[in-house]
């Protein structure tokens, strides 16, 4: 049994509590569509990293700036677009945290985790918009 596709467009203020409430709503939608715990974890982690980046690094926690989140959950895939009001950034300028010289740096791993857990990730415009997709590869009732 599979639930109907879910689409939503939400604008949230630059507050991590709001981001977590939205993540919980998306998580409920993923479970309703029968996504496995493994896929839900991957999507939750990518959302956490991308929303923290948008709120902290993009909008600099500015309460006057907002984050626009558009997402769609279908039986086969999850797609999300996250846009902040910051100046953007060039992902290729972010140092590779797996390089020996960077491996012990305490930060800078969010983008790497997003790429590792999602099927595709793209930055747009000046870098203040990210789109991510996760193809569903589990089966309802099984976690592998």
């Amino acid at each position: 049994m599979t639930a109907d596709p879910v689409s939503a467009a939400v604008t949230i203020p630059s507050e991590l509590g709001e981001a977590h409430a939205l993540q919980a709503r998306i998580e409920d939608g993923l479970h309703a569509c029968g996504y496995t715990d493994h896929d839900v974890f991957a999507i939750k982690l990518a959302l956490e990293e991308a929303l923290v980046n948008a709120i902290k690094h993009g909008n600099q926690m500015d309460p006057d700036k907002q984050v626009r989140v558009e997402y769609r959950i279908t039986a086969d895939r999850f797609d999300v677009r996250i846009a902040d009001e910051g100046p953007g950034f060039n992902p290729s300028d972010v140092p590779d945290p797996t390089e020996p010289g960077n491996i012990e740096r305490p930060c800078g791993r969010g983008l790497l985790l997003i790429r590792g857990f999602m099927s595709s990730v793209e930055y747009h415009g000046c870098g203040n918009v990210v789109t991510m997709s996760k193809l569903r590869n589990g089966h309802p009732g099984g976690d592998e």
Binding site: V52, P106, C107, R109, G110
Partner: peptide
């Protein structure tokens, strides 16, 4: 659940 923010610690 744990995000990258904890890894630094």
């Amino acid at each position: 659940f744990m995000s990258s923010a904890a890894l630094g610690k």
